[in-house]
Write a protein that binds this DNA or RNA. Structure first.
Lengths: 205, 205
DNA sequence: GTCTATAAAGTGATAGAC
DNA sequence: GTCTATCACTTTATAGAC
């Protein structure tokens, strides 16, 4: 393997570690397994990182930074707020079922962070970022579908993430896709009741 | 330690292992840590169990069997269905916050089961048992508050568990109790819309 | 039966050759 | 700088003394 900058090698190792974790879990992410996945000799690991703990801290931080809710990025809104919510949740469900290991890794890393002293704040941060992403989506949906939210948008985002977490967890456990779809139907219905049509004083062409 | 039957020793070790897991996580539940917690010499472990894996299998099975949703057992219903749901969810939240490690252990064991080939069905089973417990509660609540459910009770139970899982997960991450309470308010409101007053042809005194 | 003492394998981390 | 070879330690599991 050609020479790489220190920062590249760190990234390469973190990336390899994430693949190993997806395959075998956090417990299976030994330094040997990671360097094997990255195609490096064992010593390269401690050339890039002080310790395995340091790498795991960087990995969790990396995930928190980069785990955008990409599901929603290319998302188009529906004709009304109910179908916008429904389609977004459905897109989320599809993303989960397409790559179950990904969500399992997120869950495992979150738990890992909750267990390691000094990393608890990263668990909180990751969860808050999800919520912030949902806030943006809720505001865009409101603008798009001409509604106002009857609760603080931050509270609604909390409800939405409660749904997505619950749906994720349930599907990971029982793999019942029609069941998950029925929950999404309910979620869309009940969230739509929090939307009220907005009276326009003026509107732009 | 006095002589104990084989079955008692197994139970003692499983119980000690659960305490160790609550304290240090699954990764910290080494055979040494477990026998130390149980006050036994190391060799006793393999006298009772073939291997650590066998003990972990029994432990997960034990939890699945015995993890009753005790929260709801001594639960009293409210005057209407909305407050019955609300109070039940609130009682659940109190139980979680009183003993955060307990839910963290359940989460961790579920993840463990999902990772270990041959144990996946136990993860599913544990989740289904929660749902069955909720079905019973929903039916009791319906009888008590004189309503009928407008969806199959099994689907509603799925929604309820989605809520409790999501609320649990969120609270473990961000420890925001007022936030969790607001989600519970919403959950009670939206679940109550699934209840319709029942017309009685006749009633018993 | 019970437990000390140890084996065998795997871990994170490094020294030292190139 | 890079990597082989190895250290020091921990893990599960067992042999063998009592």
């Amino acid at each position: 393997m050609a020479r790489m900058s220190s920062v590249d090698r760190r990234l390469e190792l973190v990336s390899a570690a994430l693949r190993v974790i997806a395959e075998r879990g956090v417990a299976g992410a030994t330094t040997r397994a990671i360097v094997a996945e990255a195609g490096m000799p064992l010593a390269s690991f401690h050339y890039a990182f002080e310790s395995r703990d340091e790498m795991m801290r960087e990995l969790v931080g990396f995930v928190v930074e980069n785990e955008a809710v990409a599901v929603f990025e290319s998302f188009r809104f529906g004709a009304d707020i109910r179908s916008s919510i429904h389609d977004a949740l459905h897109a989320y469900l599809v993303a989960i079922t397409d790559d179950p290991n990904h969500e399992l890794v997120m869950l495992e890393l979150m738990q890992y962070a909750l267990r390691i002293p000094g990393l608890e704040h990263l668990a909180r941060e990751q969860w808050v970022r999800y919520r912030v992403a949902v806030v943006e989506l809720l505001e865009a949906a409101a603008a798009n579908n001409g509604i106002e939210w009857s609760l603080p948008v931050d509270d609604i985002a909390r409800i939405v993430v409660t749904f997505t977490d619950g749906i994720t967890f349930a599907w990971l456990a029982d793999r019942d896709l029609p069941g998950a779809s029925r929950v999404i139907d309910f979620a869309a219905d009940s969230l739509a009741t929090l939307a009220t049509p907005v009276r326009l004083k003026e509107h732009t062409a």
